[in-house]
Simulated scan of single mutants.
Amino acid sequence: MTLPIAEVEVLFDGCRWAEGPVWFNDLGCLIWSDIPNNRMLRWTPDQGVGVFRAASNFANGNTRDREGRLVTCEHGTRRVTRTEPDGKITVIADSYQGKRLNSPNDVVVKSDGTIWFTDPTYGILSDYEGFKAEPEQEGCFVFRVDPASGEITVVADDFVKPNGLAFSPDETRLLVADSGFSHDPDGPHHIRTFDVTDTNNLKGGAVFAEVSPGVPDGFRFDDQGNLWSSAQDGVRVFDPEGNPLGRIKLPQMVANLTFGGPRRNRLFIASTHTLCAVFVGVNGAQSP
């Protein structure tokens, strides 16, 4: 799964809290968030790192939709947005039942175009990663947005701090992290697995894997159905049933990761102050 001759490379060291890496194969670049610095950065193999968006509204998680457009969770504005090809910003979701969202954290897009995101309170707990405020929602939910009508639906309401999420390669399961341990020593630090129904609802919710030390934040699947998850001491890898397969040890806490490169065999890792990368012996699950 890992390559004996491949080493972890530091591509950039200058973030306060790196998050939300997303690979653009058509552009040959990686974009990620540096939340406390209120910016998004871009790395290209030949040009290195530059600023993609200087005022990002404290952007956190990112993904691409099925048309290749950037979809972003913004702590500062407490919304999920889409960047159009001409650079304009479209608001996908900023409220539920007339009340502002907490602070959208991570987002994925299913092949049918539906947009799924988590909404913990991290971005309103202080002024470091957003703007301190009281939550308006009654809890921290997992939401689904219909791309045609814009209707927003709660698909899971029993999380303490829902965080990273990812569909299995065949989209029959949705895995969602609960990182409640980050602010409560008795809180959860696990990943749960749900069955996705034909009507895009969720069933089940059993614990897929516990992540320790630290909490699971962001994760992605490879094309064999194995899950690569962030952890306090690096990256943990689990098989499709949640059994541990291995790990990549790193000196800083990992927040999120994604597969990229022309063959999707390079793992990009957002690790506190740094963006790292390592070639691995598998390929990431196909994405736009």
Rank of each mutant, 00 (worst) to 15 (best):
P244T: 04
V71T: 09
H190N: 06
A54F: 04
W43V: 12
L275K: 02
G281V: 06
V145Y: 07
K99C: 08
A156R: 06
R100C: 12
E19A: 05
D178E: 02
P288C: 05
T153W: 04
Q232C: 02
A177Y: 00
E210L: 12
S56R: 10
A166L: 03
G28M: 06
T114C: 13
R144L: 03
R53V: 06
P213R: 04
G164W: 00
C15T: 03
F12C: 11
V278E: 15
M1N: 14
S229A: 11
E74K: 11
D217G: 01
F159T: 01
L267S: 01
P45C: 03
L101N: 09
W32C: 03
F52R: 07
N25A: 15
R53F: 10
V142Y: 00
F58H: 05
T272D: 15
Q252D: 12
D112A: 14
H189E: 07
D34H: 03
G48S: 10
P36E: 01
V10N: 09
T83P: 07
D146F: 00
M1F: 15
N102G: 13
C29N: 08
M40E: 07
P169W: 09
S103G: 02
S230T: 04
M253Q: 09
R42H: 07
G246S: 09
I92D: 08
L174I: 08
I269P: 03
P216A: 03
P288L: 06
T274E: 15
A54D: 12
V91M: 11
L267I: 06
K99N: 13
D46V: 10
S111M: 09
N283H: 14
G218L: 02
P120T: 01
T83M: 07
E129M: 11
